[in-house]
Nucleic acid binder design. Structure first.
Lengths: 294, 294
DNA sequence: TCTGATCCATTCATTTATGAATATTCAGTC
DNA sequence: GACTGAATATTCATAAATGAATGGATCAGA
């Protein structure tokens, strides 16, 4: 309302940028960990202040107008400067304290990281840890997290990556279920079983396709997007599905189903930004994760 | 407290920059039109988020630490980007509407601008005007105001200036006062009168010094920093003092005291930033001020 | 045409930030 | 050494921003 060109809150530009890049208020809200109404109001505040429409409201989200496109480069420059501030501040740190934010897939977070992070906590009690189990890939460059475990090698320029090992995946079924349905001895018998899974298995499906096993979404008789719940479904006998070997092999309720083709493990790449690489707290956690995940 | 490196409010950087440049919380508060406690809290919030001291608290204000110096360039870059956004937005304007913010000295604001701005309002009813009477020189480049009337020619690079005329100044005294004390006929008699004035007369004093008339602060028997109140003091007979001729000549209570030397008028320079020069609303007000002040 | 999903706008109770007033600190000056 | 002036901290009542819940609109797919 009484927002004026001269005293436009800088943080509104952050909101603008998030909405522009995500393409929706809801998406931007998720990225900034705010709510959708908040982002909506902030966008309106910027538009009032600049007295120009920056977005065209669309049913599927918000699209930039010419005016929005015009200020986008400067907004990006602000984000870059802000990031510069963060990096500068981090580089001046000398103590092994602070918070390290780690992103990784839900499965890795659940199956591998707890042990690793417990070790990290014991070694560096001064470092607070934040674990974000998330199957999408957040952007490390904007400081949204410090270290990521990725199942592919990131190619961006300002990142450093290190291969730490394979994340073994196997096909499992509940003993009770297999007792009833019979243990499959060839590929056709496997395909005849009830499959449990969904989106998160995309990479596995892609891998299988390379060996001539085509599976589409409808092949899954039980579908669940949440990997941990999916695993419970398998354990209780809804059908068979893929899971980390480290989880499956340790569970007395299930057993591994031998596959005719050799499904390779998913490569795990430890990732951080070059600029943060040498800050004490990041380096400390990096070393532990690198050693313990190997 | 729970402020984290990754979700540091961008507007806090604006606060940091203002405090760094002004050298005090109070100064920064004035610049940003906020309060001193607010700035204090915001600075603390940044320091918490970066977990580093950015300022050394001093009795005379806050001085940057090494850490603060380190992030200053990036903060300036953010400010530049923010300014870029403002300029881009302004340049896309096509309508003669919006707000124009004008800065000028208290005397000029009081004596000349009301008539000029009234004319502007009549001509462009869609433009809202904001007048900031202020004897210090605010920075036009950071968008704190759009047009300034300066008593000197600004030399900064990205500004455009135009000489619009002289602001005539004369020495005045209340008739009642002069009846009692007698009308001075030479410089010594003038100096024997009670002088009313203070800081704001600096430029006049400097001008007089060039003619061999040295006056120091203690020569003013009645002192007041507020030019308008100062004028009331003169009108009521506290003594004689300098005032704009346009005010003094129109007031029946006072009369002008002829000076043996010719005190030149103060040159008035209309100033705006190059980038804003061609936006419709600025151009419109500029033209009117340029014509009416001549 | 209908259904499900996704997104934006609005409302209202709650949390958070703000500023006026006041106390406190500190360097410079007589 | 006390005083002055200009600054920073603190307190508390008020104003502003936030988010959960809800309603409404639009598009994709059956």
């Amino acid at each position: 309302m009484d927002q004026n060109l001269s005293n436009l809150d800088w943080s509104l530009i952050r909101a603008f940028l998030a909405v522009a890049e995500e393409g929706s208020l809801s998406g931007a809200a998720r990225r900034l960990r705010a709510s959708q109404p908040t982002l909506g109001r902030q966008v309106k505040a910027i538009e009032d202040a600049l007295s120009a429409k920056l977005f065209a409201r669309h049913a599927r989200g918000l699209a930039l107008t010419d005016m929005g496109e015009a200020i986008l480069p400067a907004a990006r420059m602000m984000a870059a400067a802000m990031n510069e501030i963060r990096l500068t501040a981090a580089q001046q740190e000398t103590e092994v304290t602070g918070t390290v934010r780690i992103t990784s897939s839900v499965n890795v977070s659940h199956a591998l990281l707890p042990r690793v992070l417990a070790e990290a906590r014991r070694t560096y009690p001064g470092i607070q840890l934040e674990l974000v189990p998330n199957d999408d890939s957040e952007n490390l460059l904007y400081g949204e997290s410090d270290i990521a475990v990725r199942m592919y090698r990131p190619t961006q320029n300002d990142l450093v990556t290190k291969f730490v090992g394979d994340f073994e995946i196997g096909l499992y079924g509940a003993k009770r279920y297999l007792d009833k349905k019979g243990r499959p001895s060839n590929i056709d018998e496997i395909m005849a079983l009830d499959l449990v899974g969904y989106d998160a298995d995309e990479r596995i499906i892609a891998g299988l396709a390379r060996y001539g096993l085509t599976v589409d979404r409808l092949a899954f008789m039980t579908r669940c997007d949440e990997p941990l719940t999916q695993w419970q479904l398998i354990r209780e006998g809804c059908g068979v599905g893929f899971a980390p070997c480290i989880v499956g092999d340790a569970d007395p309720l299930v057993e591994r189903i031998p596959l005719p083709v050799d499904v390779p493990g998913l490569p795990m790449w430890l990732t951080t930004s070059k600029a943060m690489r040498h800050t004490p707290r990041i380096r400390a956690i990096w070393e532990i994760m690198s050693r313990e995940l190997a």
